[in-house]
Design a protein around this nucleic acid. Structure first.
Lengths: 329, 329
DNA sequence: CTGTTAGCGCGTTCAG
DNA sequence: CTGAACGCGCTAACAG
């Protein structure tokens, strides 16, 4: 329609090398306008071997922990001129595997995985193999808060954060603790349990198995655990630590409906310090993680040149003491 | 590697027509396994003219309103065997336009847009033109909570919901109101103001311009507005209605730090009834929208055969009265 | 600066 | 049931 060859049209529209006569550029652009032309992204990728999109895999969209990470990832990626595809695993490792395969087949530039809980089963090794193949093809895998795999990662300092929290609480005079932990002993959340234990160990306090309660990583999980806790355990507990804020809030609601006052009867602490929850009463003691920054760092890793060894970035958690954990006496 | 032609390999891996000898299928599959083969999605799309992904455009990932819609969209799409790409506009119309163009070029099956506030400027008509071109190419555009454009849409009943809220509050004995509205008179949020006014009109109550306060659609927005409200306006107000929950919570925090008690001094109502906020004290009166269902319906529309006319689905909001708006006297 | 030619990695005719 | 040949829409080399 512009009276030039396909090649010239391509050059005009794309500008790979701008050695096209101004006049022709104009004619091509106008023709494109008129035809409502949009390049076929698939064909472009096929030809160029493109890698212009970053894949982000998270467990849950509605969980603010993940959505803040996503915010950081998207913002930074946009800034770098890349697009982001967000996908959700619902915490199923098989789905994670499927997604990795998908993104490998889409030739994503990098795959960022937050909150994987792949453990060490058969699926875990399939995932690992898939990611290794992906990297062999030139992609980059970045884990957020997951270690033990030979990929670049952003560490959240879960262990040191929980340790610091325990120490702060000891400093406030608490002596008897219970923990609401994740459903099993895998993944990053368990590091928080370990760190908390380490902190308590400094004061020669140990957690008995009966003081570790397990539930799903959600408001519902925390609610269920706190509903089913035996009254005697509650009475013997001065402070309840939930490994994330959502669970802490679920527990708070359950305690309240059981007539247990927080913090008068039991103090409560969470983890993540997620922004939309800052209006709870009492204000929740928590450990802040700069989640947006985590997302941004993950993008940086994903876009950086691959070094000889796997790169690790890390981020500093900070304890936020609030009304839910007043000083004892 | 399997000792067959490319064509046979393709047929074996893809199964478009299963006229391949079992033995060969096995050999191809094993070879693929060994080579860590993954089909090149771009090349596949180029050839097949695929449309197997749904694009979702939202304003903000960290806003639970949008993340719950996203949850619904992703879940339903997954169920239908499609993948979802989530992108964020940050409420900038120009970015929305850019994204639509991107998804058009990617041959997405459908583009679902939530919370567009394109208004009626020049960008708005460009967006419209782009979407029309996209539909002409065989795509499907679906708006969530945005009318006035000739595309399929899911209506949230903002006007009727806000009207019902006003009526309920009148029923509780409130007579003097103020509204925290969005930054301008565009978009779906303004329907809530209109509906609220309609409800009040039934009791011959009008809102003066000084009783409509405008701010950003966020916690910060609500906080700012409530911080800057003059004391005299607060004293003359029995009930403050914020057009979404996030703003209501921001206002709550601001009022609290000004020493204004909720609901003793001023009652407060929000809109959306977003789940993670259900633990606030006092519990917030709000209007519930089944957001996941909204997302699911949008997917259904996007995947349905295009009828002669644009299709509209709608959803029923329901008023949730809670402690933040006790009965007067 | 431009047009011609040659693929990218696939899926799909069309003959066997 | 299989292989050879073709073409999807595009970009990159190679001559002009």
């Amino acid at each position: 329609m512009a009276g030039v060859s396909q090649a010239t049209a391509s050059r005009a529209l794309n500008g790979s090398d701008r050695k096209v006569k101004q006049e022709n550029v104009a004619r091509v652009l106008e023709a494109a306008q008129q035809l409502n032309y949009v390049p076929n992204a698939s064909a472009q990728s096929t030809r160029r071997g493109d890698r212009s999109t970053i894949a982000l895999i998270i467990s849950e969209v509605t969980d603010p922990y993940f959505s803040w990470i996503a915010e950081g990832v998207i913002e930074r990626a946009e800034f770098e001129g890349m697009h982001v595809t967000v996908s959700v695993t619902k915490r199923e490792a098989s789905r994670e595997l499927e997604l990795i395969r998908l993104f490998r087949s889409q030739r994503s530039r990098a795959i960022i995985i937050a909150g994987s809980r792949r453990g060490s089963g058969e699926v875990a090794s399939e995932i690992r193999a898939e990611l290794e193949a992906y990297e062999a093809d030139g992609g980059r895998a970045v884990d957020i808060s997951e270690s033990g795999m030979p990929f670049d990662a952003v560490e959240l300092g879960n262990r040191s954060g929980a340790r610091a929290l325990a120490q702060s609480l000891l400093g406030l005079g608490y002596l008897r603790f219970a923990v609401i932990a994740g459903p099993d002993e895998r993944g990053a959340a368990e590091d928080r349990v370990i760190g908390f234990r380490e902190g308590l160990a400094g004061a020669d306090i140990e957690l008995a198995p009966s003081q570790i309660l397990r539930g799903a990583f959600s408001w519902e999980g925390g609610h269920t655990v706190a509903s089913e806790m035996s009254t005697s355990v509650i009475e013997q507990t001065e402070l309840l630590f939930a490994v994330n804020d959502m669970m802490a809030l679920g527990a708070l609601a359950a305690l309240r409906s059981r007539g247990v006052a927080v913090p008068a009867d039991v103090a409560l602490a969470g983890y993540d310090d997620v922004a939309p929850l800052r209006d709870t009463v009492p204000a929740l003691t928590s450990v802040r993680i700069p989640l947006k920054q985590v997302g941004a760092q993950a993008v940086e890793l994903g876009l950086s040149e691959r070094g000889a060894r796997t790169a690790i970035r890390s981020v500093e958690p900070s304890v936020q003491l609030r009304a839910s954990t007043p000083a004892r006496r």
